[in-house]
C-alpha cells in the first residue's frame, strides 16, 4: 500500500471516532432530557457525556499527532483532566442534591443513605445538647 492510501484510511478512522463521540454525546443528552430524576439524570450526564467527549478529544489528539506532527501535551492534559473531573463533579452534584432535600423518583426501591443521614443528624443534635 502506498502512503496516500494509508493516510486516507487513517483520516477516515479518526473521522469515524469523532462521529462516534458525537453520537454518544447525543445519546447522553437524550438521557438528560428523558430520565425522571436528578440522580438518574446525573448518571446520564456524567458518565456517557464524559465518554463521548473523551472519544472526540482522543480523535483530535491522534489527528494532530499523525497529520500535523504536533504531539500536543495540552490536549493530553485536557483529556486527563476531563477524565478525572467529570465523575467527581457529578458525585459532588448528587451529594449536594440529596443533602439539600431533592426527592427521589417515586419508582426508586431503595434508599440506604436516608437512615444514615438521619442518625448523623441526631448525633449532631445530641452533641450540641451536651
Amino acid at each position: 500500500m502506498n502512503p496516500e492510501t494509508i493516510g486516507s484510511i487513517l483520516e477516515s478512522v479518526i473521522g469515524i471516532v469523532v462521529l462516534i463521540g458525537a453520537l454518544i454525546s447525543v445519546i447522553s443528552v437524550i438521557g438528560l432530557i428523558r430520565l425522571p430524576d436528578v440522580y438518574l439524570r446525573s448518571h446520564a450526564a456524567t458518565k456517557s457525556a464524559t465518554l463521548g467527549v473523551l472519544f472526540i478529544l482522543n480523535g483530535a489528539f491522534l489527528y494532530f499527532w499523525i497529520f500535523e506532527d504536533h504531539f500536543s501535551i495540552k490536549l493530553l492534559l485536557g483529556i486527563v483532566f476531563v477524565f478525572l473531573t467529570g465523575p467527581v463533579g457529578g458525585h459532588l452534584n448528587g451529594r449536594a442534591a440529596y443533602r439539600s432535600g431533592v426527592s427521589l423518583w417515586k419508582g426508586s426501591v431503595r434508599d440506604d443513605l436516608k437512615e444514615d443521614l438521619k442518625r448523623e443528624r441526631q448525633e449532631r443534635q445530641e452533641g450540641r445538647g451536651l
Binding site: V18, G21, A22, S25, S28, V29, L32, V38, R41, S42, A45, T46, A49, T50, G52, V53, I56, L57, A60, L75, G78, V82, G86, G89, G90, N93, G94, A96, A97, S100, V102
Partner: peptide, 22 residues
C-alpha cells in the same frame, strides 16, 4: 430543581469543549 440545572451546565461546558476540539 437547582442540581438539575447544575448538571445541565456541566454538560454544556463539556460539550462546548468537544465542539472547540472539532
Amino acid at each position: 430543581s437547582i442540581p438539575d440545572r447544575i448538571a445541565a451546565l456541566d454538560t454544556i461546558g463539556i460539550l462546548l469543549l468537544a465542539t472547540i476540539a472539532v
